[in-house]
Design a protein around this nucleic acid. Sequence first.
DNA 1: GTACGCAGGC
Length: 614
Amino acid sequence: MASQNVFKTLKKVFPSNSTAVTDQEIADKIAKTLITAGLKPLQTTPSLLSNLNSRVTHLVLSNPHLPLHSCLFFFNFLCRNQSLAQIPDLQAHVTLFYRLYEARKFAQLKIVLNSMVNNIDLQCPVPKIVALIENGRKNPNFVEKLCDMLLRVYADNRVFDEALGVFDYMDQNGIQIEERSCFVLLLALKKYDRMDLFFGFFDRMVEKGVEVTVYSLTVVVDGLCKRREVDRAKKLVGELAGKGIKPNVYTFNTLMNAYITRNDFEGVDEILNLMDKDHVDYNVTTYSLLMDWYANSGKFDDAERLFKEMCNRGIEPDVHVYTSAICWTCKLGNVRRASELFDELIERGLVPNCHNYGALINGLCKVGQMEAAEILVNEMQSKGIDANQVVFNTLIDGYCRKRMIDDALSMQVLMEGKGFKSDVYTFNTIASGLCRLNRNEEAKWLLLAMAEKGVAPNLVSFTTLIDIYCKEGNFVEAKRIIQEMKTKGEKPNIVTYNALIDGYIKKGKMKEAHKLKYEMEENGMKPDLYTYTSLIHGECIAENVDEALRLFNEITWRGLTRNVVTFTAMILGLSKKGRTDEAFRLYDDMIKEGLTPDDRVYSSLVSSLHTAKS
DNA sequence: GTACGCAGGC
């Protein structure tokens, strides 16, 4: 066999007792053998290459008669045979880099750089690497290219200290630094949440005169926004605009998303005005963000209008847009229409992704259509899209809502079997499922024990726990949990306050409830429909129907929309007091607002009539 | 470079 011949030849090249040969002679012989062998496999024994040393390897690799593919072949051969005394050292790497650079094989060069960076035996700070370049080969272009690629490779491999070291080296040695490479490092720092280094590095880029473009600007703006420093982000945009770096649609989308997250109407408006002024057209993401924003604030008509406007402007909706549209259509309770949107997406030639399936599966789970949800899960899996953690959590929630806790728990087992650990969503979902079944003790235990399983409880977990204690009338324990959550850096939100308020109301402690409403407003939280409904309910029970009516009217001038639960509470309160006319008037209002009264409304109205007559 | 689906309250 051919490999056997090479084996024999190498045996001649490296006689075990050889002494009187120079490095150059050995290197020449190896080169010759390699040229003869071509790409055929090479075989050896540990003793065979005993004459090999760093100098010989370097001489072989830099031999101009040895074709590049043979160099690589030899290099890889040495790498693979870890048992050899001589694995390629840093010098061997640098020699090969030059060969690859000379041949313009940059992709291959990147691969070798990668393996060097990942080799724990090779310490490779830039100055050391550059020092190993032979004098004749130390041309500025090579050094620049090598540094540039090294910066990227270090960034890709999260070796951030070295990456920053390359930047400094380039700066100190007057080597041109490409923004595109810095950009790779910026992205990696952001992705791995090294924000300390991230902002400092951007400052250095600017300071050292790297030609910053809107690309880096946008990444930094996003970094700031993710740290909720939106104002600083906007200021930066202004500053750089003054230096001629104009924000584009990506920058504006990033800022707008930050304002949307903050629920800052004025901020969003401001961005839209700026886009208008700068003649920056909306792209599909701009529309997607705005549609989501409208839909989440209940303005479904506006969301729908934007969807049409986008299509009319010739902007093709993408999978993200469909995910949002499916999601809000489901929230409107129209799963059928959501399902049509899913079909429409496919008709447009788009390939549905896990998010698209997830949104529709969620819609089905929320209306209790678990069979249909399961069919979709199977369909997506048959298309090679694996159900991820979100889909599993969605299904668990679906079963919990149907009070099928055992199915939910089986789903959790299935999920964990697929390698997904139960996360904070899983625990919170199951806990609330248990609460629905009045299995409060188990829910409490789960929420208190999750930390031991390595999942830190979050605001939702604490709020659920507080809600349980409040429903039990155990305000001491509820307050203790609030203290505990504060020490863990979670601030009570509107839902937490509402749980407390409702708890006090259920125990007839109206004074405390109102005090909490006040405290909540002091802390910058506006009472919502849940707060008002609880208070109205409480005042009605306490027979303060006029106070309830006052609150009922306060809702509308707060800009909130009353729902079935609010109307029901108020109608019940009026009926109980025999204020039948007012109750009927509200009933009419309710119908006018497109709400569907439930049985409780009718029976209370009927009994009110009965009371009034008697 | 930006954006998408899962959990809590009346």
